[in-house]
Design a binder for these strands. Sequence first.
DNA 1: AAAGTTCGTTGGACCGAACAACAATCCTCA
DNA 2: TGAGGATTGTTGTTCGGTCCAACGAACTTT
Lengths: 407, 407
Amino acid sequence: MTGAQRGTGTNQEAVRRHNLGTLLRHVHDTSEVSRAELTGRMGLNRSTIAGLVGELDTLGLIEHASPATERRGAGRPSAGVRIPEDGPYVVAVDLGVDHATVARVGLGGTIRERASAPIPEETEAWQVGATVATLIRQVVALSPTDAPLLGIGVAVPGLVRRSDGLIRHAPNLGWHDVSFGSIVLAALSLDVPIGLGNDADLGALSEHRRGTAKKIDDLVYLSGNVGVGAGVITGGHRLEGVAGYAGEVGHLCHDPRGLPCHCGSRGCWETVVGAHAIAEALDVPADQAARLGTTLDEMTTPVRELRPIATELGRGLAAVVNTFNPSVVILGGYFRPLFRLCRSEVTAGLTERALRPANEAVRLTLPGLAKDSVLLGAAEMAFEPVFADPVASLAAAVTDAPARLAG
Amino acid sequence: MTGAQRGTGTNQEAVRRHNLGTLLRHVHDTSEVSRAELTGRMGLNRSTIAGLVGELDTLGLIEHASPATERRGAGRPSAGVRIPEDGPYVVAVDLGVDHATVARVGLGGTIRERASAPIPEETEAWQVGATVATLIRQVVALSPTDAPLLGIGVAVPGLVRRSDGLIRHAPNLGWHDVSFGSIVLAALSLDVPIGLGNDADLGALSEHRRGTAKKIDDLVYLSGNVGVGAGVITGGHRLEGVAGYAGEVGHLCHDPRGLPCHCGSRGCWETVVGAHAIAEALDVPADQAARLGTTLDEMTTPVRELRPIATELGRGLAAVVNTFNPSVVILGGYFRPLFRLCRSEVTAGLTERALRPANEAVRLTLPGLAKDSVLLGAAEMAFEPVFADPVASLAAAVTDAPARLAG
DNA sequence: AAAGTTCGTTGGACCGAACAACAATCCTCA
DNA sequence: TGAGGATTGTTGTTCGGTCCAACGAACTTT
């Protein structure tokens, strides 16, 4: 019972849509489920499940599988349902700090192909669009000919307006009010559903569905890159705000007497724990973002200069924990190695400032999907419509993508 | 399509439940609706609406009304539906700083009776429970004999665990881990559904449904009392967090070098803009909370000492605006007169620190329900079950409350 | 090998919303 | 003032989707 706008009544057509969608989502989440399990989880009758499975099968969204090998208890074993190999897929794009990564991701969340290319600093949007389009062509070229392309999802390090996918402000890329979705579609001369999202939001989404926070409905994904942002899921719903800018915790005032920030304010949290601060502490030149990542990843014991940053990370996290009362906080981006190296400093900083009950409820952790969180989150976003309405989404999909993109 | 737990399928019984509930909610929201309007808003067929209205009518939840007086256009005028005078009601309790207010609130959100009593400082929970029980008896005694009591809602200035309504920590009252719901029910020797909620959360709820933020799905109600707390609604859903502690923005670190706070940290926002800070600026003795309220309410031009506090209020609000990207921020409690007096200082402080796009999207405003926001929010919380499942909720209601409570 | 258990399938029952036709009520215009 | 148009409520029917019961299939247990 999710998805429809509030205040609206439900007709039986909507019921069917919803049931088809949630069934598909269950298969997507666990990659293979027995039909018996589905009846239990969805609370519907065996025969109803049979009908739903049948319809999704004829649509080509799922296929039958032999019963699971390990038995538990007596009785006839239940037939499995799974995602077909040559089934529907999406294209996920991750616009990172200095690289663009593109992947073809099948329903079920498996990465089939991937490709990436560097993005030089100060590149204009249409150039990046062309690069991304080339990567998409590469990745789609190898797909089965009759597999439908459901859509494209793009993760952006910046403020994205949810309603139309406009990139309001992406400081790393130097972009303002860029309609990147249209640019990519134009470069491909293709018309498929395309969605854009903030990288932290999408990290939260994928970790919620496939990562550490599976089955956890209140979590925060904290992305530490040049900027600091939080993707928040509460009660199973993504926190958006009215325009999609919610979770911009990087510009919370950490110290009113601190350094000026590019946002116009001073002492923002990200001036203390952002990539520039980390790079300075490690004596890495500010313009070599890639080297900073590898330096941190290869480090096994923390440099002394890192510890104060970790403490400030924890202290700032207190604001996140107090406001959202999450069950899990996932530390992504540069915070991943930082937390690995200085776990105790981070937790100490947090306990220092967080309210006791909220602090007791939260667990800090690393991303379960490692560096693919954001990329897979973009895929999940692109999959969203097919769970809301499988039939309609499939009707809007492109079935001959390889041929079209080759021409 | 709301309410059911995620991942669950929908059967037709659930459809009926949902449609009955949302229809009732529409009548509740607007106190009188024409059936034609209902068909439009709910997107259902005329005949379906007729069936739903009929069922709710026989349940005694709504009644027919003569068509609206003002005509618009040709055609047969549509018959109205409204809440009956002697219909179902709830009891709302607002545990304020020094007073407890209790009201009998009918479906539709109208206050039928109200009563209040002072709560001396350092009163124990069972004593407060007895006081509240007495007030409830007073208020219920006058209700129509056959009107069903649906439940009780209690607003508490403190951290409330949503799952079981336990008051984890209420600094004003000096309570820790108090099961106030059970205490009240025991004092009444009654068994009805009772729910507890944070005062700011409930202020947000009522302002969302009946106040300034009607039809606005992203809002923050900021409650300024002894403590500072935020009730947040995003995407139409209340922000709860895993245990219900979300929105505790009063203890965000406003200045690391600030005064120590009772929470153990230092420089918390509420040490700067909380009641104690305001009282100090106005030279009101710290223990006379009631006088502080009247002093502020009667003030027509701001005292000079108030301005810096208003500025800090705005600066701290930037954190709220950046993290939640709300469409409206409602300033309740002592912030109501403060904002009325020093509007420009507050907005200046906000623009100083908030991100531009988020700041452009937000509007600061006063509560539309004045001082009754929290009380009515408690009522709304108590009504919630009847919208989720009218039939079940009515079955759990008490029909002879006056007699039972008199005995 | 027989009994018990669990699952998939099938046909019918049930429930609720949609639909179509008709009556009721009001507005507008001649 | 009366006819026509428009909109709504009502009623009987249809349609769609889930539930239910019975049966056969497949596997475990004794």
